[in-house]
Every structure is written in structure tokens, then in C-alpha cells.
Amino acid sequence: MFCDSEMAARIERMETGVIVSGVRAGLDRAGGPGFAREIAGGAACFAGPNSPMNKVAGVGFGAVPSTAQWAAVEAAYAEVGAPVQVELAHLADPRIGADLTARGYRLMSFENVLGLRPRGRTWPIPTSVDVRRDDEGGFDTWLDIVVEGFAHPDGDGLPAHEDFPRDILAIAIRDLTPTGSSHRYVAYRAGEPAGGATLRVIDGIAVLGGAATRPQHRRKGVQTALLAARLSAASATDCDLAVITTEPGSKSQRNAQSQGFTLLYTRAVLVKDPA
């Protein structure tokens, strides 16, 4: 599957919209010093101290941000005492990477965006795992499963450069999972809730996110089952593309590629500490 800059721009616009919506949901719920500011087709977002939504996303597919725009973004993050984290797709305008390194940003890590065409396909679910869509069930139960999984990193692949407090992670996942537009899935193994995940279709793109497995149920086919169930559901919608984001070389990437995903592009994560 070939990914050009046009496809990458489409995915980045969608991802940026998800983050902005999550930040605004948090501000509507609790107020606080958060912000979501447009910058050259992307957005600079802050949802509160230590939130995973604190990032600049989606830049590089429109105008190149000016020196004054970067200075304004840096000032906004400095005002709340947070570093500036830019997630920059490798298919974005290369001048942005040069500008950021000249401004003192450090390359911290990478993340991979993978995709496939889901239409007209089905995926078998391992018989040892029962996957149920849980939109009407207890949100807090699903949230506990996912937060527990994320709170205990798997350890495969490159180490994550961030580690979020459990309560902050729970808040972010709640704000990023709006009721009605995001479908929640729970995987059961041996009668116990073993993992959780989400499926959300936005502008023709099926977004597979929020996937986590409780530590005692790992290496038992839980993530494979969650992937298969969501991809089969995506195949029945009007989406033409399914995407998932993983750490490079991780078990999650291996599972995704085993279900037919291919690497579309990589994001570089660049960080500048507050002055």
C-alpha cells in the first residue's frame, strides 16, 4: 500500500481533529489552563499538566510556520510550564524539521502510522477470545481495563519516551473517547475482561485506538482478536482506509502487520523544554 503526502495530510488532519476535540472536551468538563491553537494547518494543544494530548500535531502539509508563529507557540507552552512536543510526519515539508532543530528542539523518539484498505474483507477472531462491542455497557469498567493495560508497558520494541500518571491517563482517555462517535470493545478470555480498544470512523478513515491488554492476559491472542473484530466492523462501514499508530518495533506493530497493515509513514517526536 503506497502512501503519498496527500494521504498523510488526510490522516494528520483527522488525528489533529481528534486531539483538539479531546482538549475541548476536557475544558468543557473541568475548565483549566488548556488551549488548542491553530498553526499552519495543524494545532498546538495543551490539556493540563502531564497530559498525553500536550503536543503540536498536523503541521507540515500547508504553509510552513513562521518564526513568529513558533515563538508564539513556545510562549504559550512556557506560560503553563510545559515543554513543546512536535510530532512531525516524515512526509511533511522538510523545512519544518530544519527550522525546529535550529530553534533547539531535540529528537526524542518516533512513532509509526500503519494502514490498510478494509472494504470487502473479513478477519477471523481467535476462538479462545470473546470480543464484544460495549457501547451501552459500563464506561468505567472499560476504562479501568484500558488504563491498567497502558499503565504497564509491554516492553517490546523501542522504549516509550513518555510515562503518564495513571489518573492523568484515565482523564485523557475519557476525553478522547466521546460517547456516540467512538465504539468501545472489550475482549474476554477465560471469562475475564482481558483487554479493551476503540473504533472510530472519521471522514472515511477507521481509527483503531485505545488498545490495551491486562498484563496477565498478554501473549494469548487478545490484541489479535480486538484487531480482527474492529477491522471486520470497519469493513462494513463506508470508510476506505483503516489506520493504527504504534511504537516502532513493538508487539502492537507486529500484531497489526500480521492482520494486513503496512507502514505508511513515521512521525518524529521533537521536544523543546520551556525556557
Rank of each mutant, 00 (worst) to 15 (best):
L100R: 00
G260Y: 08
A47E: 05
G104R: 01
R133Q: 13
A57Q: 06
A151D: 14
Y265Q: 09
G60E: 01
H217N: 07
G249K: 07
D135R: 07
A78G: 14
A89I: 00
L176R: 13
G138H: 10
N50F: 13
L263Y: 07
L158Q: 13
Q257I: 05
I125S: 05
A89K: 00
L231I: 10
G97V: 02
V56G: 01
S5L: 06
L116G: 04
L263I: 09
P126G: 07
P178R: 04
V201S: 00
R121M: 14
G155E: 04
L227R: 02
T213M: 04
P126A: 04
P33Q: 08
E38M: 09
S66N: 06
G204W: 03
S232G: 12
L107Q: 09
A40L: 09
A36G: 01
R132G: 04
A233Q: 12
G157W: 03
Q259K: 14
R37K: 13
V113Y: 06
A43V: 06
N255F: 03
L227I: 13
P153I: 07
V271Y: 00
D99H: 07
L107N: 05
G115C: 12
G104E: 01
I145D: 05
A47M: 08
G180S: 01
V131W: 02
L27Q: 12
L27C: 05
M7A: 11
V207Y: 12
G60F: 00
Y105T: 00
T177W: 03
R121T: 10
R166D: 11
V18L: 15
V18D: 14
G34D: 01
A92T: 02
V147C: 07
T179Q: 13
D99T: 03
Y185V: 02
Q69R: 05
H152P: 06
D135F: 09
C3V: 15
G149K: 03
P65W: 00
V201Y: 01
V80R: 06
H217Q: 07
